[in-house]
Design a protein around this nucleic acid. Structure first.
Lengths: 247, 247
DNA sequence: ACAACTCTTGACGCTGCGTCATATCATGGG
DNA sequence: CCCATGATATGACGCAGCGTCAAGAGTTGT
């Protein structure tokens, strides 16, 4: 048993090494600068050994992408534990995504690189569900929050509105917004002061538009953000926003 | 002169052929199923000849992507010519994007395939501005509309609001929403009735949230959509929504 | 008809993925 | 301590696909 475990530990250590080196190469030299031969050379293992761990280059990158997404999900999951009204907890999800993007931009970029048809089409079909797992979990949390809001009376759906639509809207703003920040859109041309703040703002406008109480006019959501950072993400906020202040 | 032109025509015809075959291969067999050798074989020209037209495989795909985006821009540009209040013209942009996505889903997919870091990193630096040209044009139209709305008094910015933010919000919803529809998000899991309608709806909620008049409660925007389809996109609407009805 | 020039070709070089026969190492019995 | 046996690691190799370029085909002008 102990022997077995030692061997397993050894394997995990090696796999970790491959992933770390691959991550560095991917970030420093891009997708095409990352080659299996280079990983082999830098780790001083042989190419064959790498293929004992990963079926192909894309599966290796998939693993990196999954980590990035898991990390994000972990922060979001912590966010929703915030003790407050449902809309405040929705804000906590925003804070979580914001912190994740600021703390780990490299990993967000890795996810974006991986999440491209030309990469995904080389990942074997049985691994593909892994791609969506985290996003599905996030969606469930969002829908849960919207339903909580309805249950406690903070949100009264108007005729024609549905929880799915609200979730979809928030998702789209956040996803589209961060995609824009990450480089898909001509942001410098738009010259927004603070794109992160703009995403928050627009989510609030959307929430207000759906009549999700408390409306931003009747609640101090800046204070909520403060509390979330202090109570849920103290360490992360320090790292993301520096020393004492957190605006 | 005539001779020169005939030769040029000939070259254009050939280039067109390469692009059409490449487009088919890309759609049917994916990025890795599209190979320069296959294009050569199917067009019965040699590989060398293809390289007289395109510097590399990615530049060829870039050309396809640019066409897709130009086509979309063309519809959007027509949309804003709609004769109506600024917010109606904003709706016209939405209608244009909607029609484009429904009529040319393949081309939207091609754009998505092309717009990935692993592809873009192989496109020479001097061609990269081409990537953003269309999006910049769309952004300018959006900002112009918001400014029109402010100028005519339909939109009065509240303290802290900026035209850029509104534009960014609409952009993010649309972009994120269509990205979700195109496959980046676990949509089937969310089970929205009609994702296209959800994008429209959320844009309206956002517009209402910013106080952009006429608010959707005080105006029949369904009628506006009808008019836009009838007056600006009669032919396209027929193709996109079938025979007579257009709901 | 032939020279000069342009355009086209596909064989070739090269890189990088993934494989697998071979080598190396670990374990346990004599 | 040494060897047999099985587990693990290796890197040379096969192959596919991009991009090139020397040689060949075609065209024009005289």
């Amino acid at each position: 048993m102990t022997i077995q475990t030692r061997k397993q530990r050894e394997l995990r250590r090696r796999e970790e090494l491959f992933l770390q080196v691959a991550r560095r190469l991917l970030l420093e030299r891009g997708f095409h600068g990352l080659t299996m031969d280079r990983i082999a050379e830098e780790t001083e293992y042989s190419k064959g050994t790498i293929y004992l761990h990963f079926g192909c280059k894309e599966e290796l990158i998939l693993e990196l992408g999954k980590r990035s997404r898991r990390q994000r999900l972990e922060l979001i999951t912590r966010g929703v534990t915030f003790d407050g009204r449902p809309r405040e907890r929705m804000v906590a999800i925003g804070v979580a995504v914001d912190i994740h993007t600021r703390l780990f931009p490299d990993d967000v970029r890795i996810w974006e690189i991986m999440n491209a048809e030309s990469i995904i089409e080389k990942i074997p079909a049985d691994r593909q569900p892994d791609l969506k797992a985290s996003d599905i979990a996030v969606n469930d949390l969002l829908i849960g929050l919207v339903n909580d809001a309805i249950a406690c009376g903070d949100l009264v759906l108007r005729p024609g509105d549905s929880p799915q639509e609200i979730t979809f809207g928030l998702w789209a703003i956040t996803d589209g917004g961060f995609a824009a920040i990450l480089g898909n859109a001509p942001l410098e041309h738009l010259n927004l002061r603070d794109p992160y703040a703009a995403i928050f703002k627009n989510c609030h406008v959307l929430g207000d538009g759906y009549g999700w109480h408390p409306l931003s006019a009747e609640w101090d959501y800046d204070a909520t953000v403060e509390r979330i950072r202090r109570e849920i993400f103290p360490e992360e906020s320090r790292l993301a926003f520096g020393g004492g202040e957190a605006a």
